[in-house]
Design a binder for these strands. Structure first.
Lengths: 174, 174, 174, 174
DNA sequence: TTTT
DNA sequence: TTTT
């Protein structure tokens, strides 16, 4: 296909802490549930309306998984840039089912914290409860699209302590 | 929510002619199937790989429906800008099912023809088989995201029964 | 041109309070200075680097101008979606000069507050010091991009003298 | 800054062949002039209006420079994703001048051919005059932001002959 | 299940 | 001139 683009941009809040799993060969996969919502005023009744949309985000990129694991919590506001992917699976009765997810994997994927409430951690200002800097715009390098795998990973109690680097190409402004 | 963004940008090709339905009160709804694909060269084998993703696009905006009806054909390349929406419905056995679609409705939705193959219509160069100009970037005006209501739809017994309303400015291309 | 897209997406902070001017016929124009910055770690020295980029944003949309005027302050974090426009003007010596701005005008323009510091106003949480709801994602309806015309502007003698017209739907948040 | 985004998305046509220069240490830099245009119908007169905007694009990414050099010609339609950067320089009289460019460099930069007219090369359908596939969505790996340098580079007569690979991370779908 |  |  002569030039194809598949891009999703979301700003929303996490409905729950990230779930981190790990593939058999050790690569992390993070799942996020992100809510976006719209509000408007009904033309007739004049009353305020709201509609919330829930999005499933899957992070295959190792660096972004680390960010998710260490800094993201229920309630956090994030900017994400990824792509749409519909996955086929079978339910218990063997019927085909489809799930559409926003996948962060490879170049052109981004995950950026924007603050927001966040839980735990004693966040004072609203979620940016991490130290130093250097965490903006985590670019992502490609990673294997594995989706098998198992190991559970309870989120550690680890208090985030800023300062880390992208897993690739650290030394360039862009 | 203090600032929420839900945006999808696609450039891809139509897998089939648009399907146009109409609500009981006469408003059009267009459904598009759009393919995006990625190609890459396998690092180990060196062979060329390709992966195609299919997207369901639903157009509630009247002006954009007209564009779809009049100009879009199987094979056409389009740029679209819309938002993600997951719809719940029941299958024949009464089980909950979910379908995620890209919705073009209200402001910040865009549909632009980019040429491409296109079938029928005698399109010579690739689909731009329409006259004058003034068709670029059909913007859309605000609308209420309601999706309840009445009219039946040809999308199978288990598909949600259409019917919805729009608030405002449906038919202004510009 | 068969399908053209001109889109800018920024998340950044205001370097100063918005400047609001008004055309002779009373329409508001808001100017924002927005900083985006990137941080990275130098591959060799290991030291943290930062680069800030400053953007000039011009808001012609009446509804978005109100938002800017009422809610935005120096330090606020915003999401904006607009388009690039390069404006020609003459400096004091009569030489041609060009300024590139991000224009919010017409459909597909968005301004959303994302919180952030913000000054004054007694903002407790960080800038969202406004009342009710219904203010997210102020979309804008189509308009003519004319920029000729009359009213003087406070932007210096060589700045283009404001005055412009809008076609439609200036003040509809949704 | 807690999360900053600086993104430009353009679909437009090249006003001229790409200009390729080379830094002293041999890295290529490509400059593109891209036109986007909007058309609308004047509300009062009913006549069709058009406005064209010209954009300066600078490509620091080596892989994308190759694509530009080999495949892009005056008239070609491209999708680009980059970021805004304003560069300061001095004119002959020593006055400060500023130029705003769209920079493609590092992750999250994209250059995709979408067809279009194109000159020379005997392009039949409109510019996609290259063979196989494998050219979609050229992701970019970071490169040095050098902007010095000199050597001119006349565009070779090389007829593009499809099939090439990204300069990084070839073996992953995303 | 988030956020306002 | 912002923000971290």
């Amino acid at each position: 296909m002569a030039g194809s683009v598949n891009k999703v941009i979301l700003i929303g809040n996490l409905g729950a802490d990230p779930e981190i799993r790990r593939t058999q060969d050790g690569r992390p996969i993070a799942n996020l549930r992100i809510a976006t919502s719209e509000t408007w005023r009904d033309r007739n009744s004049g009353e305020r309306k709201e509609k919330t949309e829930w999005h499933s985000v899957v992070i295959f990129n190792e660096g972004l998984c680390k960010v998710a694991e260490q800094y993201l919590k229920k309630g956090a506001t994030v900017y994400i840039e990824g792509q749409l992917q519909t996955r086929k699976w079978q339910d218990q009765t063997g019927n085909d089912r489809y799930s559409t997810e926003i996948v962060l994997q490879g170049f052109n994927s981004t995950l950026t914290m924007l603050g927001g409430r966040g839980e735990g951690g004693g966040a004072s200002r609203g979620g940016n409860d991490f130290g130093g800097g250097g965490y903006d715009d985590y670019g992502s390098a490609p990673s294997a699209p594995s989706r098998s795998g198992g190991a559970s990973s309870g989120r550690g109690a680890s208090a985030p302590s800023g300062g880390f680097s992208r897993d690739l190409d650290d030394d360039i402004p862009f």
